[in-house]
Design a binder for these strands. Structure first.
Lengths: 248, 248
DNA sequence: CGAAATCTTGAGTATAATCAAAAACGGTGG
DNA sequence: CCACCGTTTTTGATTATACTCAAGATTTCG
């Protein structure tokens, strides 16, 4: 009865099956969702704060981030998204978007009508629970970021962010530890950690001096995972990655 | 067919009906949930990070907050909870708690078994959506707090927090604008805004000097709402309070 | 009333922001 | 391939914001 959903071509199927094995029936229901696929260039907004979208998007390929801007022209990045994420799924129940979503590099995005998702949820309560769970993990990551920004100093914040990104990336693509493609600029790293771009640069140099990382342009190498983890006080439990799920 | 759910004695019914009118059937389903009611003293943990609870709690009376502690002994408060909130509903799908929940003052709390909630969600997809939506609003508030802590300075952060708390309180209890009972200490306000308790004190004095607020002990009076709102750059749309909901 | 917690004040220090400019990099078109 | 452009990264110097430590005042509550 259980499908080989983990090896499906559909990144949503792959993602949801990580926390709970999917039946063939459920896998099919997801794969049959109507989806309008688009290629979007780097640095483009997919949706904006204030929008009332009638569809949610799945990040099929590439990296994205959500952010808000303040009246004083500052920007806070709330999350980075990796392939398989559903970055604006909250729009299914919160009809006015309270944040913007933008691409970090060229992305392939699949748009799914809210209506189709509502039908899916009504017919498949276990899938509804899985999707709900995805949004709860997003919230768990927001909580951890609050600790990061509110209670850690610069070097620590950046180390934590790099640990998190690396870990999440490994979860969706069985990455080798060696070299990671960091798809964001230092300025964006600063917007995510609540630091200025100048201070971000200095903090990254401190991590290099410590021998924790090597970072050349977009090529990041974790030289000493334990050191980075300690500096960032990184404890991955909040990502809820390995947990078994109970029946619905 | 529509009940007078808004005036129900059950705070969960009252809360859910704010965003979507409930049928008599749905109202009854919520009111018939098995609920174990307990009185909890001020300053007690209700659940702790690392717990695997088999029930979720409803805050029936009193105020609570969620927090995490860092290895260095600092604490970050992630949210304050008002009567009617479901402060650990995420435990329904995230089985290991990634934050602690504690009372600010003496509280009345109702515990509802996860199993009963799962059955409720399977039988009433519209209620499942409403509960899901509640957790999405929590996440929206986390996002706004990220902006607050990451990109606003101390005085602004505190003003924003006071605006938010006042607004949420008004939504659950049709409060007069005059005097508000602030159930948290300055140290806790600091833990919520990412400031030290000393700096919190100075920031509050600045707000008093500006004539925006009066705060004596636990008695807060908003003297100049517009000024406070501007200092805190407070825009309540992220609370998703007034929005009409579409059919399921 | 007295003890404990909370709030307040002062002084010195640390962390991070801002401003400005130079160096390095990445991509483009000649 | 190379010169050129815009962007990103880096550096230095100055300033602002917030933290820490310490002690005294005030409030709360038993």
């Amino acid at each position: 009865m259980m499908s080989n959903a983990r090896s499906s071509a559909n990144p949503i199927v792959r993602k949801l099956s990580l926390s709970r094995p999917l039946t063939d029936d459920e896998t099919a229901a997801i794969e049959n969702l109507p989806m309008h696929v688009m290629e979007i260039r780097a640095g483009q907004d997919i949706v904006r704060e204030g929008d009332r979208p009638s569809r949610a998007c799945a990040l099929l390929d590439g990296f994205a981030f959500t952010y808000k801007s303040t009246p004083k022209g500052k920007r806070q990045i709330m999350s980075f998204h990796v392939p398989g994420d559903l970055p604006d799924l909250q729009s299914l129940h919160l009809h006015v978007l309270d944040n913007s979503l933008s691409t970090l590099n060229a992305c392939k995005v699949g748009f799914v009508p809210h209506e189709a998702l509502r039908i899916l949820c009504n017919n498949h309560p276990r899938l509804a629970a899985s999707l709900w769970r995805e949004t709860l993990i997003d919230a768990a990551i927001f909580r951890e970021w609050l600790v990061n920004i509110g209670r850690r100093e610069g070097v620590s914040r950046m180390a934590h962010l790099l640990c998190e990104f690396t870990t999440r990336l490994k979860a969706v693509a069985g990455h080798a530890d060696e070299e990671i493609h960091l798809p964001m600029t230092q300025s964006q790293l600063g917007d995510a950690t609540g630091l200025s771009s100048v201070h971000t640069n200095r903090v990254l140099q401190a991590l290099r001096r410590e021998g924790a990382i090597s970072l050349k342009g977009t090529r990041l190498t974790i030289l000493d995972w334990n050191k980075l983890r300690e500096i960032g006080q990184f404890e991955p439990s909040y990502l809820h990655l390995t947990e078994e799920s109970s029946a619905a």
